[in-house]
Amino acid sequence: MKTMSTATSRSRPALLAAVLLAAGLALAGCSAGGGSNSASPGGSQSGTIGKAPAVGDAASGGTSGSGSAATADRSVVVTGTMTITTGAPLTESAKAVAIVEGAGGRIDGRTENAASNGDRGSATLVLRIPARVLNQTLDALRKLGRVDQLATNSADVTAQTQDLGARIDALKASTARLLELEAKATTTTDLVAIENALSERQGELESLEAQQRGLNDQISMSTITLTLRSDAAAPPVKPADFWAGLGTGWAAFVSFWTTALVVLGVLIPWLAFAGLALLAVFGIRRVRRRRVAARKAATPPNE
């Protein structure tokens, strides 16, 4: 019995030291991952996040050589805005949804305003488009109307993805080591210490994995805010050259005469009524004059 007690008392400090050593190594690994911007390219890391091409390379199939390899190793988050003027914003909004969903994307936000005060309505959509087909989808959206504005921004998050991958790998290694120590624990004190450290590592690991999933979604699905508006809400477009000026002048000429014909159509009934009224007045005056003349002719002159 003394021998077993002595062995147990000797193993307890060693086990506690192992727990503390594993925890210290985990913390050191996380700190090293946070301070490093690169990960081992040869190893298969469970924390690897999917890569997305930049806007100009999306779904282009890539090119051979070092340029395509460098692009494939980058993690890029693409965001942007797009403004389209169209004659039927609400109708085109439904078409935009169909285009994005047909490309494998989704709609994260949708706001529509009904027509009022000469405005044909408007719509604002938050589009999530797969990065690999971003350019093709934008080209399809261009056909909905006149593109007044398109701006995209690419943010390289390669260092952030590698940092998360390294920290996740370190925490997984620490967790695996703590599980091994938990299986070998012989006292309640050792078991409680290991479980506390294990719970802390697992909580941090779940938090980092959630961040990784969110970043992965931003990389794989580009975010474009699309605004559809009518001509009434769009600012006037200034002609940029002679032919644009000629087109603007012709449009103004046609618009003037179209408006003039509309006004004439509105005035014709009133003009006709006014003409008939004048004819009636002139007719009555003429009859009166004839009667006066007849009376004067029938009355003998005074001698």
Rank of each mutant, 00 (worst) to 15 (best):
M1K: 05
T6A: 12
T8P: 00
T8N: 13
P13M: 01
L20A: 13
L21V: 02
A23T: 15
A23V: 11
A26M: 10
L27K: 13
A28Y: 04
A28P: 00
G29P: 04
A32T: 11
A32K: 05
A32R: 14
G34L: 14
N37H: 12
N37E: 13
S38E: 15
S40W: 14
G43M: 14
G43A: 14
S44A: 13
G61V: 01
S66I: 12
G67E: 10
A72N: 03
D73S: 10
V76C: 01
V77N: 02
G80P: 04
T83L: 10
G87W: 08
A88P: 05
A88Y: 07
A94L: 09
A98L: 04
A98E: 14
I99K: 06
G105Y: 13
I107G: 08
R110H: 12
R110G: 00
N113V: 09
N113Q: 13
A115H: 01
G121W: 10
L125I: 08
L125W: 03
N135D: 07
L138W: 03
L138F: 11
L144G: 05
L144A: 08
R146V: 15
L150I: 06
D156R: 05
D156P: 03
D156K: 13
T158H: 07
D169R: 05
L171H: 06
L171V: 00
A173E: 10
T175M: 01
L179W: 09
L179E: 06
A185V: 00
T187Y: 00
T187D: 04
D190F: 00
D190V: 08
A193M: 01
Q202G: 10
Q202P: 05
E204K: 11
E204I: 01
E206F: 15
Q211E: 15
S222A: 12
S222K: 07
D231T: 10
K238I: 12
G247P: 01
G247N: 15
A251N: 15
W257D: 10
T259Y: 03
L261A: 14
V263C: 12
L264I: 12
L271R: 07
G275V: 00
G275T: 03
L278Y: 07
L278W: 07
V281N: 01
R285A: 07
V287W: 13
R289C: 01
A293N: 09
A293V: 09
A294V: 08
R295W: 04
E303P: 07
